[in-house]
Lab assay of single mutants.
Amino acid sequence: MSIQHFRVALIPFFAAFCLPVFAHPETLVKVKDAEDQLGARVGYIELDLNSGKILESFRPEERFPMMSTFKVLLCGAVLSRVDAGQEQLGRRIHYSQNDLVEYSPVTEKHLTDGMTVRELCSAAITMSDNTAANLLLTTIGGPKELTAFLHNMGDHVTRLDRWEPELNEAIPNDERDTTMPAAMATTLRKLLTGELLTLASRQQLIDWMEADKVAGPLLRSALPAGWFIADKSGAGERGSRGIIAALGPDGKPSRIVVIYTTGSQATMDERNRQIAEIGASLIKHW
């Protein structure tokens, strides 16, 4: 067993022997301040990774656009098919120029040779490549099948209805392509620590998230040296922004954090800054 596999296998073990965790309302004060600064709703939840206990939450059962955070769930569904012998990570998928959609920095470079399922998941999570996500959605049967996968996990809230990039439209009061912070946090925890996926697939999923290259201005910008984070960000229309993450000190994750916002007129930089400040408060009061 590799060191990384050992780390993920012992996530519940280490967490069980940690000192009790206590909620700190100071972080919620910052979440509410972010709402004021952005002029928009902000949803927040913080779960203990081992027990699933909610440590703090704000608007945990209000719907927010998922945006690209759905790509972690998508690759979880792909990995479940791999575990069941219905898919192979090494299978190569070929596609054409007509398949390319807006923001496809990886797939646009491989029109000639195609990409493997493993490479597509890596591109979808680490670079948020939209064509990679659409190609992977095709392998599982489309958005409705991802929703069905989530329902089978016990998540009857999260739903995907459309493809990239239309799913980022974020129309107010439109339930399409949305989740709730509580539902997303619980589902992410199941994917990373539950028995739904094999140990190898859980490790692969967290490795992809740990290698995320496009979430630097968010929670990662607030992390002290030595902290662990595996995350996936999302951005959408109407001032929408979000991030889902597993993080913790001492090089291992111990909490799940989900943050979503929508309806702001603020710039992307300002949305990023507010999420980073929430992260800084979380870490300060850990």
Score class of each variant (00 low, 15 high):
4 Q>K: 12
5 H>M: 15
7 R>S: 09
8 V>K: 15
14 F>V: 11
17 F>V: 15
18 C>I: 01
19 L>E: 08
22 F>L: 13
24 H>W: 09
25 P>S: 11
26 E>Q: 10
29 V>N: 15
30 K>N: 07
30 K>P: 03
31 V>W: 03
42 V>P: 00
46 E>S: 15
46 E>H: 08
46 E>A: 10
47 L>W: 03
51 S>I: 04
51 S>A: 08
54 I>A: 10
56 E>W: 05
60 P>H: 13
66 M>Y: 04
66 M>R: 00
67 M>E: 05
73 L>I: 14
74 L>S: 03
78 V>F: 04
78 V>D: 01
78 V>R: 00
78 V>K: 02
79 L>F: 04
85 G>R: 10
85 G>A: 10
85 G>P: 01
88 Q>R: 12
92 R>I: 14
92 R>H: 10
93 I>Q: 05
94 H>K: 14
99 D>R: 08
102 E>G: 09
104 S>A: 08
108 E>A: 09
109 K>G: 14
110 H>W: 08
113 D>I: 07
117 V>W: 01
120 L>G: 02
123 A>G: 06
125 I>F: 02
130 N>F: 00
130 N>M: 01
131 T>L: 06
137 L>E: 04
141 G>L: 04
144 K>D: 15
145 E>G: 15
147 T>F: 02
150 L>R: 00
150 L>F: 09
150 L>Q: 05
150 L>P: 01
151 H>W: 15
152 N>V: 10
157 V>A: 12
158 T>P: 00
159 R>E: 06
160 L>S: 11
160 L>K: 02
162 R>S: 09
162 R>L: 05
164 E>K: 01
168 N>F: 03
169 E>V: 11
170 A>F: 11
171 I>E: 15
173 N>T: 12
175 E>F: 12
175 E>K: 12
176 R>C: 09
177 D>L: 01
178 T>C: 07
180 M>R: 12
180 M>Y: 14
182 A>N: 09
182 A>S: 13
187 T>I: 08
188 L>F: 13
190 K>W: 09
191 L>I: 10
192 L>D: 01
194 G>Q: 12
194 G>E: 12
194 G>P: 11
195 E>I: 03
195 E>G: 14
200 A>Y: 12
201 S>I: 03
201 S>E: 02
204 Q>L: 14
205 L>C: 03
207 D>C: 10
208 W>I: 03
209 M>N: 00
210 E>D: 09
213 K>G: 08
213 K>S: 11
213 K>P: 04
215 A>N: 05
216 G>D: 08
218 L>T: 04
219 L>A: 03
220 R>G: 04
227 W>F: 08
229 I>V: 10
230 A>M: 07
230 A>H: 01
233 S>F: 01
234 G>E: 01
236 G>E: 02
236 G>L: 01
240 S>I: 01
241 R>E: 03
244 I>E: 01
245 A>E: 00
249 P>L: 06
251 G>H: 15
251 G>Y: 09
252 K>H: 14
253 P>I: 10
254 S>G: 13
255 R>P: 00
259 I>M: 08
259 I>S: 01
262 T>R: 08
264 S>F: 04
265 Q>I: 13
266 A>V: 12
266 A>S: 13
267 T>V: 09
269 D>T: 12
269 D>K: 12
269 D>I: 13
275 I>W: 02
281 S>A: 15
281 S>Y: 15
281 S>F: 15
281 S>N: 12
